[in-house]
Nucleic acid binder design. Structure first.
Lengths: 362, 362
DNA sequence: TTGTATGCGTTATCAA
DNA sequence: TTGATAACGCATACAA
């Protein structure tokens, strides 16, 4: 069958006819050894197919050479790309990635952090529902564990790799305003469980106000609704006068396009749509999606680099936000309704909450 | 600052005024202890914020409670979903996931396996370029490490969670044939580095033959070309008489749609397109993608379950392939060219290799 | 240049 | 019911 026996450095030493310390020194190049012994040890290691046990090393050295990473979901390409960026940066440094995902659940978040810490990770790269309220995260830091945040806006006492969600959202409002849009909506999934969505709404709202536009309607969706264009269509249909929607992420924006088609609205003729994130697939649509393009992979790289710096004891100051870009696409056009007076025609609902908000709070 | 000091069970024992063995028993509920001592130990652990070191445990118990997982890429939603499925299944079992990705590189593959093994994982869940030729994987198994494959067709000596790529591809050829298509093409990325693509081509090819159709043209793309519809358009343009394309994955199929538009071909009017995988985004396209729908998450779940069974010493027989479904979509229609004689009009290129194949071999 | 012995945090054994 | 102690695989201080 198989040699269930793990070969240890002891076996190597025995076969090479030397002490384990010598074997260790040879295999690690960490001390003196005669060419003769060196030869024997290396041969023995090769013959036995020996490789070090990371566990023994970790126990002895106090470092596990493992980084814990927590993201809400790996299925969301934004986070998948970020993790990819982390992997890239960590590759070759000797650190391995222990990955957990929370499925956007604040409790699972906390538990995952605790488990990661239990695994003796040397550092944490984290995107969670509410990092500011996580007891486990606080405890991890109390233990002296370096923590690097991703996607979160700056938070007291943490270093984070992020884009300025507020500013990016203002940019969208600006574009809408310049094209004559007045009545807008902000569409979001799990609004209450994401500081990113909140900040995007805040920026969008602020700029709309600054431009004298009516407050955007706030539409919150449950996960089920977002995946069913038919339901989304029903929600959008009654919003007469609406000419532009800012979706908190690209998937929602694509769903809006689909829903608009269902109720006979042209995009962008009747309805302009702008997304957020800049996922690749948006480019490939028949009507390419206008969106705020971010660089999740760069975010992962920066977060990882920050953590590596911390692990080396370097000072860790908050870097500036990563850049974003407005991608024009083809889902944004000027508003057809020229009149500005229609503000008075019908009251504009400031907030539309969908019924099935079965969301877990962080 | 912070208490860099990790609190160990020794600290707990000291504070509780008992031996470490007792503390261990209490905290693990693994042996007798008086209610009195139990109280003290638990209080001490709470006060110190104690949690066990997984490393010490692993060293002692011989098991790290960690599963190594290798996939080609996390950015591909197919693999991301599979990993998600693995996570789901592992959640609550006490096992953590150590994730590595190879970026479709056969060498990186091997290295990753070696690293994972060095980390003392208790088992491996793997999708790699060439599992049959991986020395590291062979060695891992020789050590007695349970290995569970994902996406790979059955391989001597391994258990795998897969869909029958050959059969699924035959199904596509059947659909093409029934709609009167004759001249077809198979489009693939990294053909030589994926047994999945090879088996899909084989099945497609076989069924085309069986139906008396000309052999499908085989088109291999480099990654760069696949992401640039313009280049893809140039490749497709000269293939006169082509009425149906089977793309080895949905991303390629979407790129084909885009490319077809560029050269003024209607989908599905002038060109039918069928993809593979059934990623969610295909549904949201203006012309929803016809595709073979697979269940990557179920694949991940099955692979994980298989591994858990192996870890419990259960017999590990190869389960049947996971089901696939033909998703109709709207990119598949009957061929316009009614004549069957056009087979003789122009020679049909059996294989079109793109120039920039900068692919690494496994 | 080499080997012995110690300790890292845990659990299991075994004697008290 | 308890607690001292050995082991796990490794690196290292220290003695040879």
């Amino acid at each position: 069958m198989a040699q269930k026996q793990k070969t240890t450095i002891k076996d190597v030493a025995r076969l090479a006819g030397c002490g384990i310390a010598t074997a260790s020194r040879v295999l690690n190049n960490s001390g003196p050894a005669s060419a003769e012994v060196r030869e024997r040890v290396e041969a023995a290691a090769r013959d036995l197919g020996f490789s070090f046990s990371a566990i023994g090393r970790a126990l002895q050295g106090g470092r596990s050479m493992t980084i814990g990473c927590l993201v809400p979901s790996l299925v969301n390409p934004v986070f998948a790309e970020a993790v990819q960026g982390v992997q890239e940066t960590l590759a070759g440094t000797g650190y391995q990635l222990l990955i957990a995902s929370s499925n956007y659940d604040g409790d699972a978040d906390n538990e995952a952090i605790a488990t990661l810490v239990g695994k003796e990770v040397d550092g944490l790269i984290v995107t969670m529902v509410a990092p500011d309220r996580s007891a486990a995260l606080k405890q991890a830091r109390a233990r002296g564990l370096p923590v690097s945040l991703m996607f979160h806006d700056p938070l007291e006492g943490f270093v984070t790799a992020y884009v300025d969600n507020f500013e990016a959202a203002r940019e969208v409002a600006r574009r809408f305003a310049e094209l004559g849009h007045r009545r807008t909506a902000f569409l979001s999934l799990r609004f209450s469980s994401s500081d990113r969505s909140r900040n995007r709404y805040a920026g969008f709202h602020a700029e709309c106000r600054a431009r004298g536009m009516p407050d955007p309607a706030l539409i919150e969706l449950g996960a089920a609704e977002a995946n069913t264009p038919e339901v989304l269509a029903e929600i959008l249909a009654p919003l007469g006068g609406l000419t532009a929607i800012f979706a908190s992420n690209d998937f929602l924006a694509i769903a809006v396009q689909k829903a608009a088609r269902l109720i006979g609205k042209q995009v962008p003729g009747d309805l302009s749509v702008v997304g957020f994130d800049g996922i690749e697939i948006g480019r490939l649509l028949d009507v390419p999606l206008a969106t705020i393009e971010t660089a999740p992979e760069a975010m992962g790289r920066q977060a990882a680099q920050t953590l590596l710096d911390m692990l080396q004891g370097k000072a860790c100051t908050q870097p500036p936000p990563l850049p974003f870009d407005f991608r024009a696409g083809a889902t944004l056009a000027s508003s057809r309704t020229g009149s500005r007076d229609d503000d008075q025609v019908a009251p504009w609902p400031p907030s539309v909450h969908s019924l099935k908000t079965d969301l877990k709070q962080g």
